[in-house]
């Protein structure tokens, strides 16, 4: 009997130790972001008051972050989940949220922070039929590449942090304002640097760049993909090359998660330059923050096309 009691006590202690390890010990707000730009913004606003984890590392496609079961315990303990919205994360986030069994971060709850809430989308499809490929029914979700719209995301994150932790409102708002001021300064510099490129025509692999083009006065004239999520056919490639030649399109943008072969071929045949540009921080080396990423994008474009 004594042995049985000892065994039971040992089991209880082991279980308690295991569960104890899983219990939260810090008072920080636990934030999970889908992408790395949102993680960067959350760190800027929350500083030491937040514990931030991004599902993406930066090198993935924004629509193709692998659904790893190791994300589930992280989401299970999260206070907030911050997402781009407009269905950008439809291929991985809904299933992960369901598996997380965390009611606080489900759609419609306080912990579900959709940064697209106040963004006016472009390219809202007239129909959501799949003849248009993997269409986003609410419009193009790649607004984070426009730094002015990215500021809206920073504000959303701040609002969510304040709502969750009102006692630290002053700190969050001060951090937000400091970061927005820094971004504003950078936006002026980026605009200045991009001025000579006004009216520049370019194509890219996936339709990541309409907001960026609008912001900097460029002309986004096509994609290598036949339709969103659909690989190009030989006919589409030929037509794209003909169009680029006829319109003297000087630039092909390849996002690093897509293969280089076809963009290189198109650039060579059309007499255009090929550049590889990240779509979120960490996409290429030395772009760990949003500002570093935008610096890289602007410099690479300017250097490629010349003054």
């Amino acid at each position: 009997m004594k042995n049985a009691i000892r065994l039971l006590t040992t089991i209880c202690l082991v279980v308690a130790a295991l569960f104890g390890a899983a219990l939260p010990v810090q008072a920080k707000v636990r934030v999970v972001t889908t992408l790395t730009d949102l993680a960067d913004f959350t760190r800027e606003v929350g500083k030491d008051l937040v514990d931030v984890r991004s599902l993406a590392t930066g090198v993935e496609d924004t629509h193709g972050v692998p659904m790893k079961p190791s994300f589930v315990p992280v989401l299970n303990r999260a206070d907030l989940v911050v997402l781009v919205g407009f269905d950008c994360e439809h291929a991985f986030l809904p299933a992960l949220l369901e598996a997380s069994k965390n009611p606080r971060i489900q759609v419609g709850h306080q912990g579900y922070v959709d940064c697209a809430r106040n963004i006016v989308p472009v390219d809202v499809p007239k129909t959501t039929d799949h003849s248009g490929g993997d269409v986003h029914p609410y419009g193009n979700p790649h607004y984070m590449l426009d730094p002015v719209l990215a500021e809206t995301a920073v504000k959303e994150i701040c609002e969510a942090l304040v709502a969750f932790d009102p006692k630290d409102r002053a700190v969050f708002e001060r951090n937000r304002d400091t970061y927005l001021a820094e971004l504003d300064t950078k936006i002026v510099a980026w605009r200045e640097k991009m001025k000579p490129l006004k009216g520049l025509q370019f194509v890219s692999y996936h339709e990541h760049w309409p907001y960026f083009a609008d912001r900097f006065g460029l002309r986004y004239v096509g994609t290598i993909e036949l339709k969103p999520g659909i690989d190009p056919t030989p006919r589409h490639i030929e037509e794209l090359i003909s169009m680029m030649k006829a319109d003297h399109v000087p630039l092909v943008v390849r996002e690093p998660q897509f293969p280089e072969k076809v963009p290189r071929l198109i650039a060579e045949k059309a007499g255009a330059k090929l550049v590889t540009l990240p779509i979120m921080p960490g996409g290429v080396a030395q772009t760990d923050t949003y500002i570093e990423m935008m610096d890289y994008i602007v410099s690479t474009m300017v250097d490629a096309v010349g003054k």
Binding site: A21, A22, S70, P73, N76, A99, S100, K101
Partner: peptide, 9 residues
């Protein structure tokens, strides 16, 4: 979903 840092279902 067992509440551990490791995924165990």
């Amino acid at each position: 979903l067992i509440p551990l840092p490791q995924y165990v279902s």
